[in-house]
């Protein structure tokens, strides 16, 4: 229908001055509009600048720099020079690096499997037996307060060959000589796993407990009426609910665990015979002790790429799971 001016002229006097204001040339209009839009940008940049500058300086540029330096040698203390793919070639046949990648992967797989299994088990125990829920939450969470290096220190008193409480008990009770946990392979790696489980267990218990408690009550009721019990009901009801949570937890755990360093540095410093050396320990050593920066950077970039690929894989699985459910 008509949008002609006679509608707003009906019976209303028109302010001539106001109409005159409307006569903006399209050029002027466009100029004003773009100036106005630019103001949005300047206003936003005031808010963004503090973070973005720090982000550029200490995250974005370092990522780029790491990639660049992985094609160079030196650049830290010695002058830098371009070596092309040399570092990358070395990356693939450095036996020490192969060793640390195997160690780290072994650690990641074992630690995550054990800690997730235990956490889900304990979380469902707490969920089924609500009395004392808060006590268990608080006490299990407690070790997370200790920084990883303190955790490692504390566990010396558990696992030390001479005065570790574990050996003291076995010696006292059974008269065994005891195990030199930290001085032997593969027990040294197991010791590291134990420390990490000690620190992380409470967190994951709380994580899965929150997940379990988000299972809708009606679902459980329905399952009860269907006669599903115990493990069967857990698999049928709780597992589907936990699945996306689980994959997500996996992403976090993978990223965290691939960066294992602190407890290794304190408990074994990579030993014995590189048996507990991890990727980050390797990077640290090459960078700051050996000054073999080329390999340190290519290993860093490798860690970056590996983590990202694993993360993407997990998100892809997550997305696929969601699609199937809907």
């Amino acid at each position: 229908m008509s949008k002609s001016p006679d509608y707003f002229n009906s019976g209303v006097p028109t302010g001539q001055e106001a109409w005159a204001k409307l006569e903006l040339s399209s050029q002027e209009y466009r100029k004003n509009a773009s100036r106005y839009r630019l103001r949005y940008l300047t206003r936003a940049s005031g808010f963004l600048a503090p973070y973005m500058i720090l982000w550029l300086a200490f995250l974005a540029i370092p990522v780029g720099w790491a990639i660049f330096l992985s094609f160079n040698d030196g650049g830290v203390l010695d002058p830098r020079y371009w070596v092309g793919f040399d570092n990358w070639a070395r990356t693939f046949d450095d036996s020490e690096l192969t060793q640390v990648v195997i160690n780290t992967s072994l650690f990641v797989v074992l630690a995550i499997t054990i800690v997730f299994g235990l956490a889900i088990f304990l979380a469902s125990l707490i969920n089924n037996h609500r009395r004392g829920e808060n006590f268990f939450k608080v006490t299990l969470y407690f070790p997370l307060l200790a920084p990883p290096i303190l955790g490692a220190m504390i566990w010396h008193f558990m696992l030390h060959f001479d005065f570790g409480i574990v050996n003291l008990i076995t010696r006292g009770l059974f008269g065994w000589e005891g195990v030199n946990f930290l001085g032997k392979n593969p027990t040294a790696l197991f010791a590291i796993i134990a420390v990490e489980i000690w620190r992380g267990l409470g967190f994951w218990v709380l994580f899965y407990l929150a997940g379990l408690q988000s299972v809708p009550g009606e679902l459980l009721e329905a399952a009860k009426l269907d006669g599903a019990r115990g493990l069967r009901r857990f698999i049928r009801i709780s597992v589907p609910v936990l699945r996306p949570l689980f994959l997500f937890a996996l992403v976090i755990a993978i990223i965290m665990n691939f960066q294992l360093f602190d407890s290794v540095k304190i408990l074994t410093d990579g030993g014995p015979r590189m048996g507990t050396a991890t990727i980050v320990w390797f990077i640290y050593r090459r960078m700051f002790a050996f000054q073999d920066t080329g390999l340190a950077f290519s290993a860093s970039v490798g860690l970056l790429i590996g983590t990202m690929l694993l993360t993407l894989l997990c998100f892809w699985l997550l997305g696929r799971g969601r699609k199937r459910e809907s």
Binding site: V63, I255, I279, I283, A296
Partner: peptide, 8 residues
């Protein structure tokens, strides 16, 4: 990962 950009 923080450790990957430690050196740069």
């Amino acid at each position: 990962p923080v450790a990957a950009v430690l050196a740069p």
